[in-house]
């Protein structure tokens, strides 16, 4: 009997120790730092497969080649559509400056035969008919401390309760206006420092969008989302994105992100 009590006591202690450890490991700031410090490729490329489904189940597919760099001065993304036929050769470039507001967006439409400079979109604007916002692309599954106040999760909102959870509340109304999000709740895979299930809420606090990462892969030593789904609760529209041939690029020249180059088509790397 004594022995049983001892075992129970040890188990109990272990349980307390474990809970304490889990709690420390999962404190909001610790989780936020873990994600923010996640190693990212400076430059990478991959083929993107989009599957867009509306609430009636009608599907549209798109294929594009993506180039992405994340450097000290700016985040640059170039996307060259290769299918379907009406989007073929359409190319989009965005340069998001990190230290000032000199953001740039460029679009090449083969029908106009001209590379056109566009007014920069709000971070909350949706990209080319998908459920991905320009802000989502720029943030790359990270949560900027300048945008969010990190908190403990509201347990009722946790979609994946077996995983540590991070909640962010927009720091200001300006951030809500820019991003379209007032709050998020994210389930974190601490092994990869990736938020693999994120629920976003709109300015009125209503559920807006659900992001689910279904496949991660190490590309050049950095964990990258290879397959993920974005479901808009309000429109019923879903976007599934799958990357193929994803690879890290060493010494990728900024020339790849020159606006004039969009007209030439996919750069040879």
């Amino acid at each position: 009997m004594k022995r049983c009590i001892s075992v129970a006591a040890v188990l109990c202690c272990l349980s307390v120790v474990n809970t304490t450890a889990h709690s420390e490991e999962s404190s909001p700031q610790t989780l936020a730092d873990l994600i923010a410090n996640r190693t990212a490729n400076e430059a990478r490329t991959g083929r993107m497969q989009f599957l867009l489904t509306n609430k009636r189940g009608q599907e549209r597919r798109r294929t594009a080649r993506m180039f992405h760099t994340d450097r000290n001065d700016a985040t640059r993304v170039a996307i060259y559509f290769t299918a379907p036929a009406n989007l073929e050769e359409t190319a989009f470039l965005s340069v998001d400056a990190k230290h000032d507001d000199s953001d740039e967006s460029w679009l090449y439409l083969p029908a106009t035969e001209r590379v056109r400079r566009l007014p920069s979109s709000d971070r909350g604007d949706y990209f080319m008919g998908t459920d991905l916002t320009y802000g989502d692309i720029k943030d790359n599954f990270k949560f900027s401390p300048s945008d969010w106040e990190f908190e403990n999760c509201d347990q009722r909102l946790m979609r994946l309760p077996h995983l540590p959870c991070l909640q962010g509340v927009a720091k200001s109304n300006e951030i809500i206006r820019e991003t379209g999000y007032s709050r998020f709740v994210a389930a974190i895979d601490t092994d990869t420092a990736f938020p693999i299930g994120i629920d976003y809420f709109d300015g009125q606090g209503q559920p807006l969008k659900q992001v689910t990462v279904s496949e991660q892969k190490q590309i050049g030593g950095a964990w990258t989302a290879i397959a993920f789904e974005l479901k808009n609760h309000q429109s019923g529209h879903t976007t599934r994105i799958h990357f193929e041939e994803m690879r890290q690029l060493n010494d990728l020249s900024d020339d790849v992100f020159a606006a004039d180059a969009l007209e030439y088509g996919i750069p040879e790397i």
């Binding site: 507001d101 000199s102 740039e104 007014p119 920069s120």
Partner: peptide, 9 residues
Amino acid sequence: LQQSLGDQV
């Protein structure tokens, strides 16, 4: 000449 000025070009 072409320039971005805030949210306009």
